[in-house]
């Protein structure tokens, strides 16, 4: 069974798992009424605040995800930094 399954489903992954991950994101965004537009604006604002302390950050590189947790929900932001040059520091 596993063999056939991996043969046919291996490439894209199981659709139930895909559905679950997509729903996990969309449900929590719905709950917080967070539109894609607001997310984009949030990234720009985060980049602007961080630019006061760190070398310039590209808002397009930031990933903001709301996550549903057991007791509370979380905002996860993945913000790649431009590696600091010696002279910048």
């Amino acid at each position: 069974m596993g063999f056939f399954d991996s043969l046919f489903n291996g490439r894209q992954g199981r659709s139930a798992q895909v559905a679950k991950e997509r729903l996990a994101t969309v449900l929590v965004d719905d709950r917080y009424k967070l539109t894609p537009e607001m997310k984009e604006q949030m990234k720009i604002d985060i980049a602007a605040v961080l630019a006061r302390y760190l070398p310039a950050i590209d808002p397009d590189q930031i990933e903001v995800t709301l996550l549903r947790g057991e007791a509370s929900d979380h905002l996860k932001a993945d913000i790649p930094l431009r590696r600091a040059q010696q002279s910048d520091v």
């Binding site: 489903n9 139930a16 679950k20 729903l23």
Partner: peptide, 19 residues
């Protein structure tokens, strides 16, 4: 059958999402 193949959300998946 679909759930067993991982091609349909299981009851556990739905419960986890809706809590």
């Amino acid at each position: 059958r679909l759930v067993n193949r991982g091609e349909m959300l299981s009851v556990d998946d739905v419960l986890e999402l809706l809590a």
